[in-house]
Write a protein that binds this DNA or RNA. Sequence first.
DNA 1: CAACGACGGTACGGTTGCGTCCCGACGCTC
DNA 2: GAGCGTCGGGACGCAACCGTACCGTCGTTG
Lengths: 211, 211
Amino acid sequence: MLRDDITTAIRGAVMHELAAVGYGRLSIEAVARRAGVSKTAIYRRWRSKLELVLAVVSKVAVQRLPLPDTGTLRGDLEMLFMIMSHALRHPLASQIIPDLLAEAARNPEIAQTLQSALQANQHTIGVLLIERAVERGELPEGADPGALMDLIVGPLYWRIAIARTPLDAADLPRMAAAVAAALGVASEPHRPVDSGPAPIDTTTGSGSNRS
Amino acid sequence: MLRDDITTAIRGAVMHELAAVGYGRLSIEAVARRAGVSKTAIYRRWRSKLELVLAVVSKVAVQRLPLPDTGTLRGDLEMLFMIMSHALRHPLASQIIPDLLAEAARNPEIAQTLQSALQANQHTIGVLLIERAVERGELPEGADPGALMDLIVGPLYWRIAIARTPLDAADLPRMAAAVAAALGVASEPHRPVDSGPAPIDTTTGSGSNRS
DNA sequence: CAACGACGGTACGGTTGCGTCCCGACGCTC
DNA sequence: GAGCGTCGGGACGCAACCGTACCGTCGTTG
């Protein structure tokens, strides 16, 4: 029986090492050093660096985010943003996630693992949040969660993980409101592009308004 | 005098190598091999891997994107999205950019270089696109380009570089419309958050609707 | 209490990359 | 056409890491 405490130490070391040097430069030796463990201990548990990282990351990524129903799309978004920004603020997460996502562009196995993890959360978010909004009448039916996902997670992810501009908690409601508006527009059934320079209805404009 | 053709070959090799293995695993030897050049040729031009990459990337990143005035915020966004998606579709760019952005989280020099490059484009986008919209009356004055940037580039970047879902060109207008709506809401002057579970107006709701 | 089995740790050969040094080749100048 | 300066290429010593084989230890079982 493999000792749990050592397994745990390895897991932690992988996370820290991943954050410190990234997947590309992650070395088994460094993980072993940081964990205060021998390389053999690691090779006994996982066959390769890829397997090790995938296992550790999967274990962490599976943790679902709770997403309470606030009663409104905007409220749900605000809540989601708070949770996301909290999660992405973790120094480990904010370094590991972009790194692995970049690595996923090269390594199909990593891509698939992340895709699965992402898909899980996507369902938490997509199915829950969006379908809730549809049921409330805040979004029209037939809204495609996949297409809306970009609008939901894109801005916050960019802000925190890419631009890394400090994000005041007070900014989240504003962002939530903006995204809610975007979702309204994006999920409208196809409408002809009002060509030309006519002033635009920046709000959801035509149909599909609630209340 | 250093031979230009060799310098060019090195630059190309760096880009390809960067895309293939990422910054973390980029090795001078591999660059030299791919460029069909000796290591000395590289060390004569740059002192280290970091300097090499920064120089090559800076050279590429400086190229500004043209951004014609279409007459409307939505049109400008659509145009911008087309340009961005075109640029991000390049296999090299779509692998190098996320990789370097992830690396920037660890390496301050890379962060600063990218920040500069990003800031340049940010001004192209922010000052041009947003101020144009303000002048047209499509956005209220005092809109903070920095805060709006997340809404503009976040969704498309997420879609192409992170989720890597195929993006139909026909989807861009929809996304542009959605983002335009988001910008309208986000740039509204502060308004009290309607607290509580009262049904929320997911659109811009109260005032400030144009047209 | 003895023997077994599974564990973690150390040591090893092989590989890869770093950064440098030296050499032959090429072009330019007088 | 001879000499000089600069270039690119190959080789070297050094360090890190990979994956494995072997060794001592500990807990368990009969």
